[in-house]
Amino acid sequence: MQLRIERLSHRYGDVAVLDDVCLVVDAGRIACIVGPSGCGKSTLLRLVGGLEEPASGQVLQVGEPPERSLNPLTYIFQDFALLPWRTVAGNVSLVLEDHGLSRDDREAIVGDVLARTRLADFRDAFPRQLSGGMKQRVAIARALAVRPAVLLMDEPLSALDSQTRELMMDDLVDLWKRENLTGIYVTHNLHEAVRLGHRIVVMSRRPGRVLETVEIDSPIWDRDPSDPALEITRQHLWTVMRDEARAVDLELTGD
């Protein structure tokens, strides 16, 4: 399924947050959106998944989602958004309960995705017992359970420490390789962007516009983090972004 963002603009009251954003994400590709804080990249993601209505412009899903997909556009949140009163298995099962599946079917899906995210031994643990990386793996398992066509990831690794982030990046690369997912990955971390994206979109400060789009052609699972070509791309992205980030740093926060 292809995702097409057409001339999207949005405002909160008097504040324009997005200005005429266009972006196409082809099936099986990951687009990384980077930009200084407050540039509207998280807002963009909420608009794409239908959690907010754009002031103007539209988001189109082109083509049919896979037949067995329960929730074509599925989020992975920065703060995991796990229900603290449900166990690991309960959190995954939550998103299956409104789809008319039998208990056995639900159990089978839960068991399957927990195995795929190496969480099978923790199915009865509560979120408070898990480390940050484990919590995010539960959130990934939950997202996989509804067989998404497009994954919408809002800084999924930002709440984790740097070592866990490295490990989780390897996990995500594995995931891209196995599941052939389409995705939008919002981050402010350029290392993550060059490791995990086919297309990297740099946004300006508020109101967010697309400043530059960079394509990285090498397959994600063949990328070596120490590859000088990636480092050159990262440096280039940073020069594009630096002035914007500096300007944001000098602004008063509106809220």
């Binding site: 998944g49 959690l51 329960l70 929730n71 556009l73 599925t74 989020y75 949140f77 703060d79 958004a81 229900l83 939550l94 998103v95 309960e97 409104d98 789809h99 939950r142 509804v146």
Partner: peptide
């Protein structure tokens, strides 16, 4: 936590499910 409610909506949970669960 409002993010939990948005999470429920983003997975297509119904209104009653969100209230109850």
């Amino acid at each position: 936590d409002r993010t939990l409610i948005r999470m429920g909506q983003s997975f297509g949970l119904g209104w009653f499910s969100i209230v109850r669960k």
